[in-house]
């Protein structure tokens, strides 16, 4: 088993954090969501809302005030994700692709409704 993407800095956290790996809930696949129904304006509001998506707490978004720096900047999204669906899966549950990801599973844990998720995808896709 290889871990090519694990940086030197993170390795100790992982060894101590090994328990967390087993504590990850069973990933459930994203259900079919109608992504064409997403409203970018509604998605933007959710992305900036502390009690909802709160993307801005961790991600730099151009035009967003006081962004956090924990996750990557949300920029050039259409070059980073081949489809809206691929982006949606990442927001649904980032631990599918990256088991150690800190990002909350917005879909799998029902932090956002399916419509809200579609809205956020529509917005982030424009960044």
């Amino acid at each position: 088993m290889k871990f090519p993407s694990i940086s030197r800095r993170r390795a100790p956290a992982l060894i101590l954090g090994a328990l967390a790996i087993t504590a990850v809930g069973v990933a459930s696949e994203m259900p079919k969501i109608d992504l064409t129904s997403g409203d970018p304006a509604a998605g933007k509001a959710i992305a900036m809302d502390r009690s909802k998506g709160n993307c801005i707490a961790c991600h730099l978004i151009i035009g967003g005030e006081s962004p956090g720096a924990i996750g990557p900047a949300l920029i050039a999204m259409q070059t980073r994700y081949p489809t809206k669906e691929a982006l949606a899966i990442q927001i649904w549950d980032a631990t599918v692709k990256t088991p150690e990801a800190a990002m909350p599973p917005f879909g799998r844990h029902a932090i956002l409704s399916q419509q809200e998720l579609a809205d956020v995808v529509a917005y982030v896709w424009t960044l």
Partner: peptide
């Protein structure tokens, strides 16, 4: 619901910023 461990914020992301 947010699926964080203590370590996610205070080890792996310590020194980084959550908002400001």
């Amino acid at each position: 619901q947010f699926n964080f461990s203590c370590a996610h914020c205070h080890m792996g992301n310590s020194g980084s910023t959550l908002r400001t």
